[in-house]
């Protein structure tokens, strides 16, 4: 589904990603871990098509298509979804209105009519129940005054609404209380199928108990320096990153 080869990216002439190789197949769950500032969010943004980051080398293909030249919204239309580490506020725009616009814009790009209001309401009801979101919440301005946990839950609600092919969850677990973590993780698991894939960026093993990864990668200094199975996450939880840094620097 997603294939990244020798990806280099920089911002304002500062190299951040320095040769990433990653292949994610349909049905798989990949976890990306790594110290603060190692480039995890940057990688997520580059996959999603944030223009601020300049790809200086390498390739990104999505379902066999080179998406390097595509605008962020075009990638979204193809099924790329990013749950943001820091979701932004859009005052005066309700969650419902935002989702309605997102869904209809995506449909428009595919040559479809707007989703009938009735279907939209049904979808909203279904997905808000899945994530145990109070309907009143959906009429509030997007992310404005949301608690940290509410923002993250709302990201996953949007993911549920849009049903992406590839979902990248950037520290979705941070800020969630124990119950919310379970609810959100269950939501993600319910949406998982053999046709889609998930990349989870996290600092903690805890989330991976719920969303069990097939692969765990360690990103350090803009490169994936170690990959393994889910045991790697346990090992990191126990030992931290020093041993990996030592290995790299050796």
């Amino acid at each position: 589904m997603l294939k990244i080869e020798n990806l280099h990216a920089s911002v304002e002439d500062k190299a951040i990603l320095r040769g990433i190789n990653l292949e994610v197949k349909a049905g798989e769950v990949h976890a990306i871990m790594g110290p603060n500032g190692s480039g995890k969010s940057t990688l997520a943004s580059v996959i999603a098509g944030k223009e601020e980051y300049e790809v200086t080398e390498g390739d990104i293909t999505f379902n066999g298509e080179d998406i390097h030249e595509l605008a962020a919204e075009e990638r979204a239309h193809k099924g790329v979804f990013l749950s943001f580490q820091y979701p932004v506020e859009i005052p005066g725009v309700s969650v419902t209105n935002f989702m309605k616009t997102a869904i209809n814009e995506t449909r428009k790009a595919k040559g479809l009519e707007d989703m009938p209001a009735k279907d939209m309401l049904k979808l909203i009801r279904e997905k808000s129940e899945l994530l145990e979101i109070d309907r009143k919440f959906l009429s509030r301005s997007l992310n404005e005054g949301f608690s940290g946990g509410e923002k993250k839950r709302n990201e996953i609600f949007q993911m549920a609404m849009l049903e992406p092919k590839l979902a990248i969850l950037d520290e979705t677990d941070s800020g969630l209380d124990i119950d919310a973590l379970r609810i959100v993780a269950n939501g993600v698991n319910k949406l998982k199928s053999k046709d889609n894939a998930v990349i989870v960026i996290t600092h903690y093993q805890r989330l991976l108990d719920y969303i069990v990864p097939d692969f765990v990668h360690v990103l350090y200094n803009g490169r994936i320096v170690k990959s393994g199975g889910k045991e790697l996450a346990h090992e990191l939880e126990e030992k931290g990153y020093d041993w990996i840094k030592e290995e790299v620097n050796a």
């Binding site: 944030k50 605008a71 949007q158 849009l162």
Partner: peptide, 13 residues
């Protein structure tokens, strides 16, 4: 730009 990118990411040009 972050607001715009957020919207773009959801398929909104």
């Amino acid at each position: 730009e972050d607001q715009i990118f957020y919207c773009n990411q959801r398929g909104i040009d």
